[in-house]
Design a protein around this nucleic acid. Structure first.
Lengths: 211, 211, 211, 211
DNA sequence: AATGAATGAGCCTTCATTCAT
DNA sequence: GATGAATGAAGGCTCATTCAT
């Protein structure tokens, strides 16, 4: 657990091997992400990953047990990284508008900074949800929602928030920004960077849940 | 030529063959949707489809050219069907709140009525976007956005709407409902039907864009 | 038989449909040759031919019975055309050197004028030889050899020719020119046109069989 | 690394499996040649090869990457073997007539000794020439021609040879034998063995290039 | 920990051919 | 004569996974 350092983005996207980092586990994950960035989910095959990181088939299986294991490991690594970032920003916020802003902008900034990982998170979710670590994923999601709701609860009681069922809260706050980011990530062309609409998206989220 | 009638949902999901309808093309598409409903995108293999609809491999290729061709055809059929539904409801709306309501609830109702098709639409989009009919998809999306914006434009000028860049409009209006529906479709368990939050979601969308 | 006019070379090799000539049979053969010219023997599939000439699958089968039927028909058409050309030039020759020259140069000139057909003749031979018209092919070859030997016979008796077994005669006379032409046809690059070596090849053939 | 031993001809042409030799790579190549001998180029399918040598599909792809890879590997193995044989005989020759004799007879003897490989060499060439190892093939051909010309050069300067452009030299010397051998290999019936015309063919080649 | 040969099910696609209209 | 939908065998190839070294 101590290892698992920050994952440098799949920068050298030239499709060729990257130099090993001394940490096989991490090399493999980096290679998997690079493969994904280049050809989508279906390009992440053991063979492709192997070619990229120079590990052997056996080594990959030694570390992750299965192809799905690789994907899940990468998924949870990225998810944790992202969660922590947003969570810490939320914790610093004093009032609701600031909290909503932290959530929306924190997410948005992370997506812009790490488009490959954001894309991966979107696409790998269903794979992980259908695998043996599905419960872990569900638990994480629950925890996250709880944390969010816990943060909001005092403010709702104070009457700052509209009386919104907690199940929809996340969708109201994050829906718009996710929707825009998803579209931006999908379309290689055309749409302006989410950066351009940081304020608009944050404001709208606040208005949607304000009393 | 006036054919391509409404696609009855993949109801008989027993995994066995369905009775042919006389229209091979439609049989194949129905079978493809049924396969998808049963096992997700990756279950849509030519072999699976073939078994379901009783067509021969060659026949499928005769009509659709490739596996991707089948998926794209189904995708556009469903997309058109859904678009028309929402569009017609929007057209009937007199003021902005009603319009937003029509968009959100129209979408929500359709998703609840046709969960399989909604799921398919979500998952097949990236496939189609990466294939030879990508332009067609882009064109459709553009058209749809334009129609939406055209409807809103007079009201914005009237000052009923906040001054929101048109690129984000769709995300603000549809983001929350899509977000919730997507989560509901993904989680086979737990989440309440979107029906329960019709009003909440519609109201929030309206608040997000109101002046 | 009266029809079967001269086959215009697959000139419009742009891969698209050619305008019909009113003679379906000929259209199909032209299309087949064009397909071959573009992608080699294996590109001559019924489907490819169909796309090129605008005929229907059924029509092709109506005229030729099978794929092999198309190839054989084209083969024999071209073979006859070529044979007649050389044969008529041979008939005009008065002495042996002139005869050898007529054979070598006649062949060489035809190859240079119709590279696609020459290539086809080389590659289709084995296909035809393995099909139901194999006997016809063998008969044609025998006839041709006999004609050649018959022309030479008087001169051999006159002592102008070396005493060469008749089975090798054709190889001695035509081997070098065929060898060079075959290599030239195969290599899209590099080798000079056979035209450049007309005299050299004719002379060598004469020397090889001269007394 | 010193492996890749001589390839024993596809003798046990009974169409059933042969006993493995411990060298998978070689087993596969042997099986491929046997398939070819039995049914021509189109009988060399992965499935056929697999049945013959007992390897799995995956194993074949592991070693050769593609069907074409198998063919190319076999082609180059045989080509090298044949080249070396003829080359070594040429090296031993003292004067031009002997050299020409070595070339013609060396080739002829090899063909008679290994008809399957000779046939394969003829038929596989175009396949290899159209594949990713085309350059390698061209390089090999160039090298071979250069070696031949290098051997002849001193004699030409000495005036023993006619003044023949070097590009046609190979065709003049080898054309007749190749022509006869090709016909012999093609016709399952009728033609006498090339052995019968060893001297005739060698002599003719010499006469064709003599001063 | 690592290696890489081997496995074999399964996938997409092509193709020659038939036949009812 | 012509059409094109339908057929189904066959082919090349990918891929996750195992295992002896």
């Amino acid at each position: 657990m101590a290892s698992r350092k920050s994952i440098t983005d799949a920068t050298a996207a030239s499709g060729t091997a990257e130099q090993p980092s001394g940490d096989r586990r991490q090399d493999i994950l980096n290679a998997a992400l690079a493969c994904f960035a280049e050809g989508g989910m279906e390009a992440v095959s053991i063979e492709m990953v192997r070619q990229r990181c120079g590990a052997s088939v056996g080594s990959i299986y030694h570390h992750f047990g299965s192809k799905e294991g690789v994907i899940a490991a990468l998924f949870f690594d990225i998810l944790a990284e992202q969660s922590q970032g947003v969570q810490s920003q939320l914790a610093k916020s004093k009032d609701v508008p600031a909290g909503v802003k932290a959530l929306v902008m924190g997410y948005l900034d992370w997506v812009v900074a790490h488009p490959d990982r954001a894309r991966f998170l979107f696409q790998a979710r269903s794979v992980v949800a259908g695998g043996p670590r599905a419960q872990e994923l569900a638990a994480h999601a629950r925890e996250r929602n709880l944390a969010l709701l816990a943060w909001f609860e005092p403010h709702r009681r104070a009457g700052v928030l509209a009386d919104i069922p907690c199940e929809v809260m996340p969708s109201l706050v994050m829906g718009p920004v996710q929707s825009y980011c998803r579209a931006w990530l999908a379309g290689s062309t055309g749409m302006p960077s989410p950066k351009k609409y940081r304020d608009t998206l944050a404001l709208a989220a606040w208005k949607a849940v304000a009393a």
